[in-house]
Simulated scan of single mutants.
Amino acid sequence: MICRVEPSVAIGDANAPAPQPLNVSYREYDEGAQVAQAALAAEIALAITYNGLSQAVMMVSPGNIEDFIRGFSVSNAIVDSLDEIYDIQLTHFDQACQADVEISSRAFWALKDHRRQMAGTSGCGLCGVEALEQALPQLESLQPAPLPPAQHLKGLRERIEEAQIMGKSTGALHAALHFGADGTALLCREDIGRHNALDKLIGAMQHAGIDARSGFTVVTSRCSLELIHKAVRARFGTLVSLSAPTVLTVQWARKHHLNLIHVPHRNAPRIYSPV
């Protein structure tokens, strides 16, 4: 077995601290390597409504949820002060949490007047989504694809640096790259947003008629859940990330038969999916 996720931990108290990382099994690409375990962070989809009006869904760590809602409400100018938050009711699901927030009439009317101008700032890429069904969508599972040969991942970071032209000069851009069946970098797209970089790559691949099932795709950013969504919709065979995935990311990759590999800085590549 390559990857196993232990049962999820209940959130418990409404404002409980973040749970301990969960252990996830993986296998290194080294020949004869044993199955090992790594502690990965948890994440859930949090939907927030104000006085019954759906406002946003974002991916968050499942801890201190009430603190996040209070801070989000103040920092996004939904309320002027915590005095305008009258109540917070949390409903927990398997991979999500619904927060129903009651705020003052003044704040609610101001929110309705300005909600179109509100921009999400959590950095998760899902702010502004107004339904949990969109944050945790039903996706068509892929046909399993073979893993890329181990030698195609050797020196990957150096090869990415060579291909990432703008990133070398600015130091502030994410990149998404596709490597062909022979391990050669075919396309590289860069952007300040990790989701934008992957969208650019998907568009370029489809425009060029590149088979997404052949070879592998690399993201230089954190492998967040929404990147898994994009990879599955684009019918990728293998997604490689330079940052560790979360538990939920691994679960979704396994569920949809997407190969998921993490390439750490100093260790051999880790296969988290398939099982």
Score class of each variant (00 low, 15 high):
1 M>Y: 09
9 V>E: 06
14 A>D: 05
15 N>E: 06
17 P>C: 04
18 A>C: 08
18 A>P: 00
21 P>G: 05
23 N>P: 07
44 I>D: 06
44 I>V: 15
47 A>T: 05
53 L>F: 14
64 N>C: 06
66 E>S: 12
68 F>Q: 01
69 I>W: 00
71 G>C: 04
72 F>E: 05
77 A>S: 09
78 I>M: 05
83 D>T: 12
85 I>V: 09
86 Y>M: 03
86 Y>F: 07
91 T>G: 05
94 D>P: 01
96 A>K: 02
100 D>P: 04
102 E>M: 07
104 S>A: 08
113 D>H: 06
113 D>S: 06
116 R>N: 11
117 Q>W: 05
126 L>C: 13
132 L>R: 10
132 L>C: 07
139 L>T: 11
142 L>Y: 04
143 Q>F: 01
146 P>V: 07
148 P>A: 08
150 A>C: 03
158 E>I: 04
167 G>F: 14
172 A>H: 08
175 A>Q: 00
179 F>Q: 10
184 T>R: 15
194 R>K: 15
196 N>A: 10
205 M>T: 14
207 H>N: 12
208 A>E: 13
208 A>W: 06
217 T>G: 04
218 V>I: 02
229 H>M: 09
230 K>I: 02
233 R>N: 15
234 A>L: 10
243 S>H: 12
252 W>I: 13
257 H>F: 10
270 R>D: 02
273 S>I: 12
274 P>S: 13
